[in-house]
Design a protein around this nucleic acid. Structure first.
Length: 900
DNA sequence: CATCCGACACAGA
DNA sequence: TCTGTGTCGGATG
């Protein structure tokens, strides 16, 4: 059961009259327990009920319910709290009620809920632990970081405005480098790497009124920081004061853009910020938010927010460490061992960009190390002999394709180390030396798809542990460069069939799976959700989940978000891979966590099953066709006004014009037309000047196409490029991409005068019961699961969705019933004319009569599957998958009989 | 030949 | 600038 279903079940309980004797069992059913389990809770010889209190129900590790006398809910709760059984059987939730008031408690955290009985379902979140689910608390982003980033972005914009010549491709690198240096200096003078405010004081003192000389002064300052103090003879005397930093950061041209009063003001603003509180985690953020929006998607400029990074690192290894620390808490020997273990952990980000993952991982590990050391000191009463961390930056490995990113990553790691050391000295009272910069982390500037990862991050030996984490680039097949395709060939050719169909990120998934296989290593990568959907599932996953690799945890689809000003538009998942293990499998959805028996390639708790595309229905459903694809640059399409103009001037063109429907036209009732001309009529049509112009435009558009298949179609510009299909009597049209918010998939029946575009799937002259199937809840659940998505939108596919949709063998009578049901749906819609499908199926506005007709349609159809309606979507999907698997198995054994 | 996809594209508040 | 919701035609097996 999912949380919504639990909420619904609780609502059913809270709206019915309270029965103290039944509540305990109803609650068990509402929290996802099978009927058989519920009945075994009832009194009997081998009852599962562990409570000795009369009327109470205690289910091991789940919940403990006690009925209360009127007004005595609190007293009843006390009784539960003092019961030894509560400690022994560790129920997640205690619940006491008299039918008026509810008192519930989560013993592990001590959280208490009080509400009235009728409001029970409004608090379903509180009861989720009783269903084996728990709340997952995401980390939040730091406000100081956001503020500082904003100031830097303004500075950057102002500098670009004043120095337009820096906007070119190669100069932008210089500007980015200038910004990185600036950030470092502002940070260094606040945290004590430099003397307090030294850098800004020198700049302000020597830059003159409103910063007119700032570019010269900053240039000299940067040059000085790249030179030991005794080799600065050619520089102004005041630079002598500055520290020698080096570390690659200040090598290269020390160029500086010219400041105007506005930019100067922003620089002073930024200098006034307290940079001590800045997370080095956000270096990437700073760089992304200041870099050109159009180039964002390139070269790892998509930085991952700290909350999202923790979604990866937590289940990957931090949560395990926390559990180990807790276990060792009172035992000095065990704590010592943990310190050794920390030193043996290596983190590897094969797409590290500016190093966010590595920095966060480093800081999280240092935090835990400190906690352990502190506990050791407390336990043993001795002060610590050595004061260096067992964690070394050299345990942090990264691959980054741009030199700038790699430099930033090293710098960010350095800052992170500096901060952690400072914290440590503060706690134990000792100092650490910092300048000049040492090498920060093992960051390699290389193409991750071309290099051998084992050379960048040597495989773990003995008790070493390697954790691969990161957020590689996402690029679909339409957006990859020739070079990236070549990289993909290099990484996947001969290893995965149809690899070009899946996203670029799959290369990292594959290499990560190969790296960890059979080793003391795990991986978790942020990815576009498309690799766990539709065609990618069958193409990619069978070769990942092989030879002992399994999904250990996963975050289901969530919207990409970071603090950059314009966010990338994409939905993400996180997939954690490991070698087969008995350890628990964790499945996250937003802030909810569920323990799963198995996590399959769809990131669902279910058996490993890959639904793959089929050209015909394997259950004997009518043939569904892909609509007509114009590829015309818009020239064969007419708006209503264009049509009117055409027909006013050339009435004889009327026979060439037809209604034209894509997804929007079906869903929103938009009116549109197209030119639909047979080859025989081509000459006649071309004699109409207005049409001739359009044909010429089509021919030009097609001949200039970069798709080899399109160019020859310039020879027949009067016709759509692909397919010439239409109905004799009527068509059932199913829009291919539609909103996921509607309670049913949009589908409509139209006359033979309508031409469908390639944005619909079409059933031509098919029986009406097809519409009853498509408009059912069952079908929506199937499509939503096995087809791809556009972000989160449904994407209807004939090959993946319709042709695989499991149906029972219908009798003729049943088909008649479904025909009638389909007609009823259409009739009910007509009664709301002229409301469009979009209006009618708005989730908040579905009219009662239409809702009822759909309910009946669902009930009718579902009874044909299992003799009654399904309880919920989980049950629907289970049944559908079972039918699908059985059918596929059968087809394997009798391949000749194929599609029915 | 027939699709499945898009670190999207675009309209409308 | 954010939210809601589907265009369009290339690249691909």
């Amino acid at each position: 059961m999912n949380p919504t279903e639990i909420s619904d079940a609780l609502e059913a309980i809270s709206t019915a009259p309270f029965d103290p004797a039944e509540f305990g069992y109803d609650f068990a059913a509402a929290t996802g327990n099978a009927k058989a389990t519920v009945s075994r809770l009832r009194p009997g010889k081998r009852t599962l009920n562990k409570s000795k209190i009369s009327g109470a129900v205690l289910m091991n590790r789940r919940y403990y319910y006690i009925p209360a006398e009127p007004g005595q809910a609190d007293a009843a709760m006390e009784l539960l709290l003092s019961d030894k059984k509560t400690i022994q059987h560790k129920p997640e939730i205690l619940i006491a009620t008299d039918g008026q008031d509810v008192v519930a408690r989560h013993p592990a955290s001590g959280d208490t809920l009080r509400c009235s009985f009728v409001d029970l379902h409004h608090h379903f979140g509180f009861f989720l632990p009783a269903a084996g689910m728990s709340r997952f608390k995401a980390a939040e982003e730091n406000e100081v970081d956001i503020k500082a980033t904003g100031k830097l972005a303004k500075l950057y914009d102002a500098l670009l405005k004043k120095n337009p010549d820096w906007a070119t491709e190669d100069r932008r690198h210089d500007l980015n480098q200038f910004m990185t240096r600036m950030i470092f200096c502002l940070f260094a003078e606040d945290v004590g790497i430099f003397p307090k405010d030294q850098f800004s004081r020198l700049i302000v003192n020597h830059s003159g009124e409103k910063g007119v000389e700032a570019h010269l002064v900053i240039r000299d300052a940067f040059a000085a920081m790249n030179l030991p103090k005794d080799s600065r003879g050619h520089l102004p005397a005041w630079t002598q004061e500055l520290e020698y930093v080096n570390g690659g950061l200040f090598s290269g041209r020390p160029d500086c853009p010219v400041f105007d009063p506005i930019a100067w003001g922003y620089l002073l603003d930024a200098a006034g910020e307290d940079w001590r509180k800045i997370n080095p985690d956000i270096f990437g953020s700073m760089i992304q938010s200041i870099a050109d929006a159009k180039r964002r998607s390139e070269l790892g400029m998509h930085y991952t927010s700290v909350p999202n990074i923790l979604k990866v690192l937590g289940p990957l290894f931090l949560d395990d460490l926390d559990a180990a620390i807790e276990k060792a808490w009172d035992r000095p020997n065990a704590l010592e061992k943990l310190l050794t273990r920390l030193g043996r952990i290596r983190v590897f980000d094969p797409a590290c960009g500016s190093g966010n993952f590595l920095v966060v991982a480093y800081r999280q590990l240092r935090e835990r190390e400190m906690k352990v050391i502190k506990r050791l000191v407390d336990l043993t009463g001795q002060s610590l002999m050595k004061l260096s961390s067992t964690l070394s930056l050299s345990s942090f490995h990264g691959i980054e394709i741009t030199d700038f990113g790699a430099e930033t990553a090293k710098l960010a790691l350095f800052i992170a180390e500096y901060q952690a050391n400072a914290e440590m000295s503060e706690m134990f009272g000792a100092a650490t030396e910092t300048l000049p910069l040492r090498d920060g982390g093992h960051i390699v500037c290389a193409n991750a798809l071309r290099v051998n990862w084992e050379e960048v991050c040597p495989p773990p030996k003995g008790e070493e542990e390697v954790y691969i984490a990161g957020n590689p680039p996402f690029l679909g097949d339409g957006s990859r460069s020739a070079e990236q395709n070549a990289d993909m060939d290099f990484a996947l050719k001969g290893k995965i069939d149809a690899y070009r169909r899946v996203d670029f990120v799959a290369c990292w998934m594959f290499k990560a799976a190969n790296y960890i296989r059979g080793k003391s290593a795990r991986s978790a990568l942020v990815s576009t959700n498309s690799i766990c959907q539709g065609q990618a599932v069958g193409a990619l996953w069978p070769s990942l989940l092989t030879d002992g690799v399994e999904i250990g945890f996963a975050h289901q689809t969530f919207k990409w978000r970071n603090n950059a000003s314009a966010n990338a538009a994409v939905m993400c998942v996180i997939v954690g891979l490991r070698n087969t293990s008995k350890g628990e499998k964790r499945l996250f959805n937003g802030d909810l966590e569920v323990r799963a028996n198995n996590i399959n390639a769809y990131l669902l708790d279910g058996p490993d099953l890959f639904v793959s595309a089929t050209p015909r229905s394997i259950f004997g459903l009518p043939y569904m066709e892909y609509g007509n694809k114009p590829t015309d640059g818009g020239h064969l399409i007419l708006s209503p006004s264009e049509r009117t103009e055409l027909l006013e001037e050339y009435p004889e063109a009327a026979k060439f014009v037809k209604r034209f429907m894509g997804s929007q036209e079906v869903v929103k009732g938009i009116e549109r037309y197209c030119l639909w001309i047979s080859d025989e009529d081509a000459e006649e049509a071309a004699s109409i000047p207005l049409l001739r112009t359009r044909f010429d435009a089509v021919a030009k558009f097609r001949s200039e196409s970069k798709a080899a298949q399109t160019r020859p179609s310039a020879a027949y510009p009067h016709r759509f490029r692909q397919a010439q299909n239409f109905a004799k009597n009527h068509s059932i049209l199913i829009p291919s991409v539609t909103s996921e918010r509607r309670p049913y998939l949009p589908v409509d029946r139209v006359g033979a005068d309508v031409i469908s575009s390639n944005l619909n799937q079409a059933l031509y002259d098919a029986p009406e019961w097809c519409l009853a199937l498509i408009a059912s809840r069952l079908h929506l659940v199937w499509i939503g699961t096995v087809c791809g998505r556009l972000e989160s939108r449904f994407r209807y596919s004939n090959t993946l969705g319709w042709n695989t949709f499991p149906v029972p063998r219908f009798t003729q009578a049943q088909l008649e019933q479904l025909n009638a049901s389909a007609r009823m749906i259409l009739k009910t819609r007509y009664m709301h004319h002229p409301k469009t499908i979009a209006e009618l199926y708005d989730p908040d506005k579905l009219p009662d009569d239409l809702r009822e007709v759909h309910r009946q349609n669902d009930e009718l159809l579902e009874s044909m599957y299992i003799g009654r309606p399904f309880r919920n979507d989980t049950e629907r999907l289970e049944k559908l998958f079972k039918l699908y698997a059985a059918r596929v198995e059968k087809l394997k054994s009798e391949p000749k009989k194929g599609a029915a």
